[in-house]
Design a binder for these strands. Structure first.
Length: 695
DNA sequence: GCACCTCGAGTTCC
DNA sequence: CTCGAGGTGC
């Protein structure tokens, strides 16, 4: 291609690619396909290879891959980058507004001040400098006065514009904002890291991921990290007029091609701010990025100037923080819990710490490998997280704060409950207590499982009572439950209270105890009438959970046929392979299990047996359905039963094999996944219509 | 033999 | 929810 033609084409490609980036990353409305985008990039790269003189620093190809630098140059911020005061309570927000009113002195009140409100992104604050509309330099916040020049790294962030759009930008424009890592991208990155088998290191959390990525000396590494950017403020501005309100400044920034969060808004007075805080707080877990609070800024820029600063914090803005979802605390002990199957699971006993709205004292450590991986030791200071979910986990150890003379934790050789050996099979992650049902912990857990709602559904029989019943010798096996009398329970309760020294010998307490005992006896009696699949699940056969119990019940129709089945016959059941078949056969071959079953039947536990069903039938035969969100007319269990009655298989997670997803209110990640995979989605009305049509 | 999908089991707090 | 492991389809 002739040089002049090439020059035109390169310019056209620059424009096209930047437009595509803007549409995709800023407007979130892609206009061209990924393949087309790649084609444009490749064409540009080819032209630049042919005509090196056309390869400029602001070319989209230069977002990726310049050479590593030795260290970061220091950048002095012309206008310091602010830090915000924090408020943790509504009272502190009210105080903030009151101080503004007092200082402004006029007839303003805390109720009619207008605030620009926005989420507080949990990423890394940076400053971008544009001269004559071209991105020239980007820096980290540093101490607010001086930061580090990370320009090559910031170029790799697709939502950072290399050129400003539109017209009327100042000659010099500094834009402040946050570089962050979207949650989905963080998850995807970590999934890849885990799959790489240690070659790529997993990131601790999106914020560390963003900060670490920007501080890479080699921009090619930064380019491989999925970073994004939101603009939220201005720094130095020369040669240009700007709006008089912060919200209008943000709108202007959007026009110039900067991504501004769609969650930014304005609010009237303290009440408006607090309303915004609560609204964003409700959305927090479902947002595509992490936030740690919201920020209120007085919207009128002239009032901002009038109020000024205390030190480096403005009087006109405050960050209202959510309860932290990550905290540090101290590991006071590492204990081992024994599960129903004997699995020995280490758990960290923590110095109580307030995380994500609750006080956490325990965190599971999953297994010995996990403890070794994290190298958690008693006495360590650790980071504890209660992420979008509920269950606390130890994220990492703060090595700097490890006390002297700690030692590596090891799985104990003996069960802390029964003293039997703890054994870990080769290539298995779990270590198990070998005590079997002679281990009190396993016995309690077995009975607890038997009584569970999804098993025999004995209401009112909690773990605590099972422990007492076992400890005091009233119950040794599940069949013993059916021999309990009202007097047994009352006597047991009295002895347990005596033992604990907590005996409120009042008439009222006696009545409460009687009521509990009567209810429990009734619940046990009620559980005698059950279904075969519940009964099988309740038995706690290794590897047989709800789904497998259902499959077995359907396939064999009756218990005797199942107990007589050979391993080969068991393998014919859908989803049962040789390993599970062996576990099931061994279970039914053991004498104490056969005896327990006989005793249960003798105690009156019954169910309706049915014809063996080798293939499921019905309008939904062969369909796999996933339920998500909250349904209004049905409980999830009811919906599951009804769908299964029509031949569907109700699964727990969405995959491309899913036939359709039923999405109720506040459906979460499963719905997203379904959309991603193009799986059909039903709303509750459609489900209702279908169920009615096939009733 | 591998990749993917399910299922099972254990888990925290109120 | 998360991890590990069994089952199955390619």
């Amino acid at each position: 291609m002739k040089s002049s033609a090439a020059k035109d084409r390169v310019a056209a490609l620059h424009a096209q690619i930047e437009e595509a980036n803007y549409r995709y990353h800023v407007l979130d409305e892609p206009t061209i396909t990924d393949a087309e985008y790649d084609r444009l990039m490749r064409e540009l790269e080819a032209l630049e290879a042919e005509h090196p003189e056309l390869k400029t620093a602001d070319s989209p190809t230069q977002r990726v891959g310049s050479v590593p630098s030795r260290e970061f140059a220091e950048v002095r911020h012309e206008t310091p980058m602010l830090s915000l005061a924090n408020a943790f309570t509504e009272g502190e927000v009210a105080d903030f507004a009151r101080r503004i009113v007092e200082r402004l002195g006029r007839n303003a009140t805390a109720h009619d001040l207008e605030f620009s409100v926005e989420p507080k992104f949990d990423g890394l604050a940076i400053s971008l400098r544009y001269e004559n509309g071209v991105f020239v330099r980007g820096a980290t916040r540093g101490d607010g006065e001086r930061g580090e020049d990370v320009t090559p790294n910031l170029r790799t962030v697709r939502s950072v514009p290399l050129h400003l759009r539109g017209k009327g930008w100042p000659r010099v424009l500094e834009v402040r904002g946050e570089v962050y890592m979207p949650r989905a991208d963080f998850e995807r990155y970590n999934a890849r890291a885990r799959a790489s088998g240690g070659k790529i290191k997993a990131l601790v959390n999106p914020r560390n991921g963003a900060a670490g990525s920007l501080r890479q000396l080699d921009p090619r590494i930064t380019a491989s990290r999925p970073l994004a950017f939101f603009a939220y403020a201005l720094g130095a501005v020369e040669g240009g007029d700007l709006p008089v309100k912060h919200s209008a400044v943000l709108a202007r920034l959007r026009d110039w091609g900067f991504p501004v969060s769609p969650l930014v808004s304005t609010a009237e007075g303290v009440d408006g701010c607090l309303g915004y805080y609560r609204k964003i707080g409700r959305q927090r877990d479902t947002l595509p990025f992490d936030i740690d609070g919201v920020v209120y800024k007085l919207n009128d820029l002239s009032l901002q100037r009038e109020l000024g600063f205390v030190g480096r914090t403005p009087r006109w803005a405050i960050a209202h923080k959510f309860p932290a979802q990550e905290q540090t605390t101290v590991v006071e002990d590492i204990i081992v819990n024994i599960g129903r199957t004997g699995a020995a699971t280490p758990a960290a006993k923590l110095k109580p710490v307030f995380v994500g709205g609750v006080t956490v004292t325990n965190a599971t450590l999953h297994n010995a490998d996990q403890v070794a991986r994290l190298d958690v030791r008693i006495g360590d200071t650790v980071i504890v997280r209660r992420a979008g979910d509920v269950i606390p986990e130890v994220v990492s150890v703060v090595l700097d704060r490890r006390p002297a003379r700690t030692h590596k934790w090891h799985m104990p050789a003996k069960c802390p409950v029964c003293g039997s050996a703890i054994v870990r099979e080769e290539d298995e992650a779990v270590a198990r207590c070998t005590g079997g049902l002679s281990c009190a912990a396993q016995r309690v857990q077995t009975i607890f499982h038997f009584a569970a709602r999804r098993a025999m559904d004995i209401d009112g029989l909690g773990e605590r009572y099972i422990e007492d019943l076992c400890d005091l010798g009233y119950v040794h096996s599940v069949a013993d439950l059916y021999r309990l009398t009202l007097d047994d329970l009352l006597e047991m309760k009295r002895r347990a209270d005596e033992r604990d020294g907590t005996t409120p010998e009042t008439v009222k307490a006696g009545k409460v105890a009687t009521k509990w005992a009567e209810n429990l006896i009734a619940a046990i009696a009620h559980s005698r009438q059950t279904t075969l699949d519940r009964f099988l699940y309740a038995l706690g056969i290794p590897d047989v959970g709800e789904a497998t119990a259902k499959a077995l019940a359907r396939h064999f129709g009756g218990l005797d046929a199942l107990m007589r089945a050979s391993e080969a016959e068991l393998t014919e059941v859908p989803d049962v392979g040789p390993i599970m078949a062996a576990h099931i056969a061994v279970f039914f071959a053991e004498r104490h299990n056969r005896e327990a079953i006989a005793e249960l039947r003798a105690a009156g536990v019954t169910w309706k047996e049915s014809e063996p069903q080798r293939r499921s039938e019905g309008p939904l035969a062969g369909k796999t359905v996933v339920l998500t969100g909250t349904l209004s007319a049905l409980t999830r269990d009811e919906a599951k039963d009804r769908l299964e009655a029509l031949g569907a298989k109700v699964a727990g997670s969405v995959s491309k094999k899913t036939s359709f997803v039923v999405a109720g209110a506040e459906a979460g990640s499963k719905l997203d996944k379904a959309r991603e995979l193009g799986v059909e989605i039903w709303d509750e009305d459609r489900l209702k219509d279908f169920l009615r049509a096939h009733a």
